[in-house]
């Protein structure tokens, strides 16, 4: 079995009286691709934020490759070699595509090397014709692709993606799927997602969240066939 790269122990996050994540035990192995699904308010995003350091969990611990990262800041976690993409495109709107990706590459490589890696990444993502356009002028799908590019250029061993397919056209989603598969050759990936079609096309192991807790964890086909999961999604009583 491959090494465990991400692990949470009894991760709990409360906001006042609301328990958004409840006693989540989660394990991810190297080069695994895992999708987190669940209805709105199930705690997927809260779990995501606790893992990435954007929020500090009320209780429990987070481990990455053996380091305890529970109280770390996002930049410390990213420095380990963890790529993070949040739900809405978070890019630098007044800078061009090259500069955006270069900034990400520069964190781990000297200036010249970063330039070379950036050019490579732009080619890989077929962003060549718009490499010198500022991000503010680009379409949503292109911005998402650039953001994925700046995550990928740092050669992460763990990638955390929050709704990467949100608001994208079918063509864009297909391209995105390709990029994610490519990334998956070297990195473990966690994807928080709503889009069932996208999940079917990419996922193997799926973790289902419901009311802050893990409802089940299994292969995508068995998860989709599970009556309890279907009821959770359709809002019926089991």
């Amino acid at each position: 079995m491959a090494e465990i790269v991400l692990e949470t122990h009894a991760l709990t996050m409360r906001f006042g009286g609301v328990t958004a994540a409840d006693n989540v035990n989660f394990k991810l192995r190297a080069r695994e691709l895992r999708c987190l699904i669940g209805p709105n308010g199930a705690g997927k995003s809260t779990f995501f934020k606790c893992v990435t350091g954007l929020q500090t969990p009320t209780e429990g611990q987070v481990f990455m490759r053996g380091h305890e990262t529970t109280h770390w800041m996002p930049h410390q976690i990213a420095s380990l070699g963890v790529g993070i993409k949040m739900q809405t495109p978070s890019v630098m709107d007044n800078l061009n595509v090259f500069e955006n990706i270069w900034l990400a590459a520069r964190r781990f490589y000297p200036s010249d090397e970063a330039g070379r890696k950036t050019t490579e990444m732009i080619e890989r993502l077929a962003l060549g014709p718009i490499a010198r356009s500022t991000l503010g002028q680009l379409a949503h799908g292109e911005r998402q692709r650039v953001e994925l590019g700046l995550v990928a250029v740092a050669d992460p061993w763990l990638v955390l993606l929050d709704e990467p397919a949100a608001g994208m056209s079918a063509e864009d989603v297909e391209r995105m799927t390709g990029i994610i598969r490519e990334l998956n050759k070297t990195a473990a990936i966690v994807i928080v997602e709503h889009d069932m079609q996208f999940i079917r096309s990419i996922a193997e192991q799926v973790t289902v969240f419901h009311q802050g807790a893990v409802l089940m964890e299994d292969h995508v086909d068995r998860v989709m066939a599970d009556p309890q999961v279907r009821n959770v999604y359709l809002g019926k009583k089991a």
Partner: peptide
């Protein structure tokens, strides 16, 4: 974008 730069490490 401060958050993005922080998430880059």
């Amino acid at each position: 974008n401060e958050t993005r730069i922080a998430l880059m490490g």
